[in-house]
Nucleic acid binder design. Structure first.
Length: 266
DNA sequence: ATGCCGTATGATATACGA
């Protein structure tokens, strides 16, 4: 058993945030770094900077302007299976398997647009379909011995204490009941453990995202928990710590998401 | 927070985020 530190962070452009990533990696020293919204094609990804940060292994999947995920690791891995979600090759998922057999899935679930109505908003329909496919995918692969980690920007804040004001956000995309139902089905698909709530149970507020549009983000604290770390039951005994790092959200020209750190004995 | 922000792009406006 040794310590494994995992970080998940929606950086909102890896090129715009490279300095922040370097600074945070220096501070937190993760063994595995899962990024979302890299917003860069693979041939333009600043890989050398990540090698200098000490990550000997990586897998990246980007496209121009939108989406994009990446996993950087100090430990060797093999790349895992990643289906075409909703039939689109829009670079929202990567999977790796470490030498100890632990599989890490890094997701960027569609944001869903503004209007929480599938009849008038294709983006919302895409989001719900994406979550349904995640449910089916993990249900199909379910096995009691599976040691899976699921991280990323899932773009849903499921619990009342995952948003700054439950009642005001019930009709706001990310906290609507239909999205929470879809997320509950993913939870059930593999008896997932919500690691962040394992360490910080309700009703303590827990946020990982604060809008750029809200001034005085830290004082107002109108946040939402959109970023998640889940594990399958076999990994629950190996959890040792979790923390959301608000520091980088306060740095100059920040991402609107804060990095989440989870420590395992693995 | 619906709002005045931020990132990206064949850009000086538009799409997208959530």
């Amino acid at each position: 058993m040794s310590n494994l530190r995992l970080v998940t962070w929606n950086v909102n452009s890896v090129r715009a945030r490279l300095g922040h990533v370097e600074q945070f990696v220096k501070e937190a020293s993760p063994d595995i770094l899962c990024l979302q919204e890299t917003k860069v094609m693979d041939n333009e990804f600043p890989l050398k900077a990540f090698e200098k940060m000490g990550f000997a292994h990586h897998v990246i999947a980007g496209q121009k302007s939108y989406n994009g995920v990446a996993i950087f690791s100090k430990r060797p891995f093999t790349q895992g299976e990643a289906p075409l979600w909703c039939g689109k090759d829009d670079k929202r998922h990567l999977a790796i398997t470490l030498e100890n057999g632990v599989e890490i899935n890094n997701f960027y679930v569609p944001a869903g647009g503004d209007v929480p109505d599938v009849a008038v908003n294709d983006k919302f329909a895409h989001k719900l379909d994406f979550m349904t496919e995640m449910t089916d995918w993990f249900a199909k692969r379910k096995h009691k011995d599976n040691r899976l980690i699921l991280v990323g920007d899932l773009n849903v804040a499921p619990f009342e204490s995952d948003v700054w004001n439950h009642k005001q956000l019930l009709k706001v995309v990310s906290h609507t009941p239909i999205e929470v139902e879809h997320m509950d089905r993913i939870y059930a698909s593999h008896d997932w453990v919500d690691v962040m709530r394992h360490f910080t149970p309700e009703p303590e507020p827990l946020f990982s995202w604060w809008s750029y549009r809200s001034p005085n983000w830290e004082v107002a604290d109108k946040g939402r928990r959109l970023d998640h770390v889940w594990v399958t039951p076999a990994l629950k005994p190996h959890l040792s710590a979790m923390s959301i790092h608000k520091g980088p959200r306060g740095w100059e020209k920040p991402s609107d998401h804060a990095p989440v750190v989870v420590d395992f004995d693995l």
